[in-house]
Simulated scan of single mutants.
Amino acid sequence: MAILILFVSLFAGGLTLIMVRLSISCVFWASKYRHDKMRVFKLYFPYYIISLFTLSVAAIIGLDKHIAAIYYFSFVFIVSLLIWKYELIQSRKTQHQNNNYVKSNHPELP
């Protein structure tokens, strides 16, 4: 029985992780500034987190403040924050790598 509960928990957690990751990726894909992740973060992160928080609180209240619902939606909220942080770290790494590459303005001599 414990193995079944563990399997269901891992499956639900994995599915949740995939859904949260896809929702954040869709924000970047739908933005007209998709390559400027810092700008996308500044524009859409507050709206995303406020709406996620509102939906989480509404679901917790709708489920009569059940402890499992509180844990689940806390997990979803923390995972979404970590994914946004990961996206920003990745954008800084690629931006730093792009800044290190400097093309010479001098013509190449024979």
Rank of each mutant, 00 (worst) to 15 (best):
A2K: 12
A2S: 11
A2M: 09
A2P: 07
I3G: 08
L4V: 07
L4C: 02
L6Y: 04
F7K: 07
F7R: 08
F7E: 04
V8W: 08
V8R: 07
V8M: 10
V8L: 13
V8F: 11
V8Q: 09
V8A: 09
S9G: 02
S9D: 05
L10K: 10
L10G: 06
F11H: 01
F11W: 05
A12L: 11
A12S: 06
A12C: 03
G13M: 05
G13R: 03
G13I: 01
G14N: 12
L15V: 04
L15Q: 06
L15N: 11
T16D: 02
T16L: 08
T16Y: 00
T16R: 02
T16G: 07
T16C: 03
L17D: 01
I18H: 05
I18N: 03
I18Q: 06
M19W: 07
V20F: 00
L22I: 02
L22P: 00
S23P: 00
S23V: 01
S23A: 08
I24A: 01
I24N: 00
I24W: 00
I24M: 00
I24Y: 01
I24H: 00
S25H: 04
C26M: 09
C26G: 10
F28N: 00
F28P: 00
W29S: 02
W29P: 00
W29F: 04
W29C: 01
W29D: 03
W29G: 00
A30E: 05
K32R: 06
K32T: 02
K32E: 09
K32L: 00
Y33R: 06
R34A: 01
R34K: 12
R34N: 10
H35D: 09
D36S: 02
D36P: 00
D36R: 01
K37W: 08
M38W: 07
R39Y: 08
V40Q: 03
V40P: 05
V40C: 05
F41V: 03
F41W: 04
F41L: 05
K42T: 05
K42R: 11
L43W: 07
L43E: 14
Y44F: 12
Y44E: 05
F45W: 12
F45R: 14
Y48S: 06
Y48M: 09
Y48I: 10
I49M: 14
I49L: 14
I49R: 10
I50W: 12
S51T: 14
S51F: 13
S51P: 03
L52V: 11
F53Q: 10
F53S: 14
F53Y: 13
F53L: 14
L55G: 15
S56C: 10
S56R: 03
S56A: 13
S56K: 04
V57G: 13
V57F: 14
A58Y: 12
A58S: 15
A59T: 15
I60V: 15
I60R: 06
I61A: 15
I61K: 12
G62C: 07
G62A: 13
L63N: 13
D64N: 15
H66R: 12
H66N: 15
H66D: 13
I67M: 13
I67V: 15
I67E: 14
A68I: 14
A68F: 13
A69L: 10
A69G: 07
A69N: 08
A69Q: 04
I70V: 15
I70G: 11
I70H: 13
Y71W: 15
Y72Q: 13
Y72A: 15
F73A: 06
